[in-house]
Design a protein around this nucleic acid. Structure first.
Lengths: 338, 338
DNA sequence: GTGAAAGCGCTAACAT
DNA sequence: ATGTTAGCGCTTTCAC
């Protein structure tokens, strides 16, 4: 493989001049430049990234570390959307993206440190999970760059991108109320799944809308799922069995749980979207195709990943923290009477 | 950040000895080793990956390049399964995985060369798409390492992992025949989607099974989808409209097409799995959860990714090509009368 | 506008 | 069993 020396020699210039051309620095005579470019093409020369990284002390790679193991992750379409958003924005800016999905939470924490301490990456995007606060303290002490998808502590002010579901929850509930529903189930996310410390805004929106309309809150209608299809199915069934007056509609905090709820509804011999109105929680592309009639909260997970990637690059380049960003969940009404 | 010199100085040894300890070479006295380990811990020293890579001329990173843009890719669960398989096996072996999903095919080809020529990665996993043969020729000329997921030319002998759907297609058809079906639709993959040059084994299996049972092949029952949900939906509808005697069962070459077919069936007021038997083409985890009653071909995409990753590492480490691997699609019967 | 030489942090010959 | 020294291929002072 040709090196910068070969190019320099053949062009009859110094390596520095070649380097200048490579890095598009000014102050190179047009002619020298043309000549060098010619030699580069002729030798099919490509600067060795490893060498320039060592010298620059920059890998131009960012890491995306996910907890819970690859099995979970690559099938979680929301996470994939976040990943996609991060991928798109960092590759756009000339960075590469390393994806790492260690098998369990403890490994994930170690993985973050491995990537960063050995200078494998210039920064990481990570999820707040139990124990992550210790890791982040260490990152900060050593000035390693990171962005969290969610809050890792209540008073986190910087370096995060989160989604607030308040408006979504409110609008979804309002919508169902306006359709005449008075017994609205809520299959919520588990109380401490990704982030341990933010208020449950979906629930708040739900409660607010009910209160505004003068509908009394029935604890029987609020259950927890675990974000999965099975969880949604079970949750709906327990909702149904344990409530004296059956719900006529249900809001699910995630799309997979909505899939599960729909299956549960069908198992009861009812028709989702007709006998029981269902609102999905993410509005994934897949959902729009599988159940086009479903009204849905819209989880901006792609945008979240994108913002996180963008923020991480800013943090890396400007060597300072950035204020956190909060995205809002929206709500999309679709025709439920298909 | 501490360097190997700091460690060497503090431990009162040479950098080489520290290096020996780091790389777990033998021939280091137990005591020196212990002392060095102590210093390493004390300084929280971590070898700089960029430096060792430059010296070793190895990045310890492999690339996974997907065509068709991130939007397509991160929502394609089969591709994600392949990615997951590759991820799991390469991370296990101490490599990192760069995922790159350029927006169009032409970019993807350039992306492969970029990753490899600049020594960003030690090798790439790639898909055979139109034009890839030129790229691969270049890779081979420069001894860059690669593995293809599919065949990029008819007579490819090495460095690929493919899935043969012959047995799956045969068994699926046989199964439907044994249930009494005589008019079996086939929603096949488009004639040249990923790989341009392998025989359509699914079709062969289908035809063989029909012939064996003495059922005459009806061209009306064979349509092409485009791998997507919408494509499957449309394909089933055209199958239905254009056939004089309607099919009573349908085999879909991919899971998303099965989802689409099911929607089409429902749109006709029929019940999938009862009025019309549906066989899905991948048996993705999601499918098992969404439509648990569906019999399905089983696309070993996770295994495919794993094998590809493994093969790539072998190619990198042993500096020679490896014979291609063919995995078989299997067939899983589930209860269709739910 | 261009070049000489030092050095990023590690590993590998080749000593001893 | 351990140390010395010379790079890996680039970028970067600083000088001209």
């Amino acid at each position: 493989m040709a090196t910068i020396y070969d190019v320099a020699k053949m062009a009859g210039v110094s390596t520095k001049t070649v380097s200048r051309v490579l890095n598009e620095e000014p102050l190179v005579a047009e002619e020298t430049k043309r000549k060098i470019m010619g030699v580069i093409k002729q030798l099919d020369y490509h600067p060795n990234a490893m060498a320039s990284r060592l010298k620059r002390q920059r890998s131009n790679i960012v890491g995306f570390v996910v907890p819970y193991g690859s099995e979970f992750v690559f099938q979680d379409l929301n996470m994939m959307e976040q990943l996609r958003g991060a991928h798109d924005v960092v590759t756009q800016e000339g960075y590469d993206l390393i994806v790492s999905a260690p098998i369990n939470r403890k490994d994930a924490l170690q993985e973050i440190l491995r990537l960063v301490k050995h200078k494998n990456v210039d920064g990481v995007i990570l999820y707040p999970t139990a124990g992550v606060d210790v890791i982040i303290k260490e990152l900060e002490a050593k000035h390693f760059k990171y962005v969290t998808l969610g809050l890792y502590k209540e008073d986190q002010k910087t370096n995060f991108v989160i989604v607030n579901s308040l408006a979504g929850g409110y609008l979804a509930t309002k919508h169902l109320l306006s359709l005449g529903h008075r017994r609205i189930g809520l299959i919520n996310k588990p109380n401490a799944f990704f982030n341990c410390c933010i208020e449950d805004m979906l629930l708040t929106g739900y409660k607010t809308a009910l209160a505004e309309t003068g509908v009394t809150l029935d604890p029987e209608f609020m259950v927890e799922g675990d974000y999965t299809i099975e969880g949604g199915c079970q949750a709906f069934k327990s909702l149904w069995e344990n409530s004296n007056t059956k719900p006529t509609a249900v809001i699910c905090a995630s799309d997979p749980m909505a899939y599960g709820a729909i299956r549960a509804i069908e198992d009861l011999g009812l028709v989702a979207g007709k006998d029981i109105d269902v609102v999905a929680g993410d509005n994934l592309p897949l959902t729009r195709k599988l159940y086009p009639y479903l009204s849905a909260l819209t989880n901006p997970s792609y945008e979240q990943g994108k913002q996180a990637g963008k923020m991480l690059l800013s943090i890396i380049n400007e060597k300072k923290d950035f204020p956190g960003v909060t995205l809002n969940m929206e709500f999309v009404i679709r025709n439920s009477n298909s």
